[in-house]
Nucleic acid binder design. Sequence first.
DNA 1: CGACTATTTCTATAAGTATCGAAATACTTC
DNA 2: GAAGTATTTCGATACTTATAGAAATAGTCG
Lengths: 197, 197
Amino acid sequence: MDHSKRTSDLVEFFKVLGEPNRLRIVGLLAQRAYTVEQLGAALGVGVSTVSHHLTRLAGAGLVSARSESYYNLYSLKTSALSDMAKTLLAQAQPVRPESEQELSDYDRKVLATFTTSDGRIKTFPMQERKFRVLLRHILPSFSHGVRYTEKRVNEILSKYNDDTARLRRWLVDFGYMAREGGGGKYWRVDEREASAG
Amino acid sequence: MDHSKRTSDLVEFFKVLGEPNRLRIVGLLAQRAYTVEQLGAALGVGVSTVSHHLTRLAGAGLVSARSESYYNLYSLKTSALSDMAKTLLAQAQPVRPESEQELSDYDRKVLATFTTSDGRIKTFPMQERKFRVLLRHILPSFSHGVRYTEKRVNEILSKYNDDTARLRRWLVDFGYMAREGGGGKYWRVDEREASAG
DNA sequence: CGACTATTTCTATAAGTATCGAAATACTTC
DNA sequence: GAAGTATTTCGATACTTATAGAAATAGTCG
């Protein structure tokens, strides 16, 4: 079973459920199968409207129909709902900052040595190359084009190590962040400039 | 934490996510915080449009904002997504037929004695009163106003007991279902008529 | 306080769609 | 095959809303 979906499918799924009568239909079909006329009576709308809604629900894979004598009996495909729940839960776990995915073996090894499992920095390596790995590990917590107050910078850095003052100065010294003379504002420096520093 | 929601809140939640650019915003904010201008550049739309979308996302409890120097930094409230996932999973389990909720202590005791935990009928009681409890236990599987073929009736009854032929005749004899003379079609009888039978 | 910046609010427009009633279709029954 | 039933499709209308641009607001910096 594949829980991944194209973005357009996701949009369609939400759009289909984002209409009061369709959501009521889903609620009714969760209990038992209904005919089009029964649904119309329950909702207080015409059968053509119900038919329209059922078409959209079926298009999103939320309902299925079977024929029974005169009638078409519609029922809920509960698997569609549970699949979507799993997709939502996956989204709910924020992507681990850019790192992780594209890290070299070397970087991964350095991080394993000098950080805890939750990403905090245990000790600072002496070698500059390893040191920069740690600084780049921190960097994704800052957005490009945003001017941070010193207070806010410290708040963010405190997630990684208690010595926020030294971390802050190092980020500037190694060219990853810049500091404004007067106002005490900081911002993230463009990648190329930083690696040149 | 309360995972229940009013229906109108649910509709709003889905409606908010059922728009391509808003869903893209959620995807971006799942990775890090963004300013309004950054989002506008990423999506290729004007800032006023982004602001509008963020207002709706915030209204559904999906994003929060904090002020930083010039900027408002928006971030995703992942708890909203996981709460919704739980709500969806709850819906995915079909409600146990009308029973359960409104059963008398007597009915519950009878069902406990003569049915298995998954609702199948183990043996048939001799007393008519208890017997009717079992038949009413089956009844919610049939919709009002629908004419079922005998084949379909047997399919449904087979969920409760292998002796579908006897079950089917009993339902008719006790006045819960009616049978058409010629075509062999069955339908559920109105409650009041049935209890009079 | 005055200059400047990001964001929000306002206004108007265009696109999408929920709804109904009528006509067309599909299927059952006799 | 003809009559009857449920459902779908079609056509028209009303309502919602995504969008951009301009004006108003809120905040920062010097």
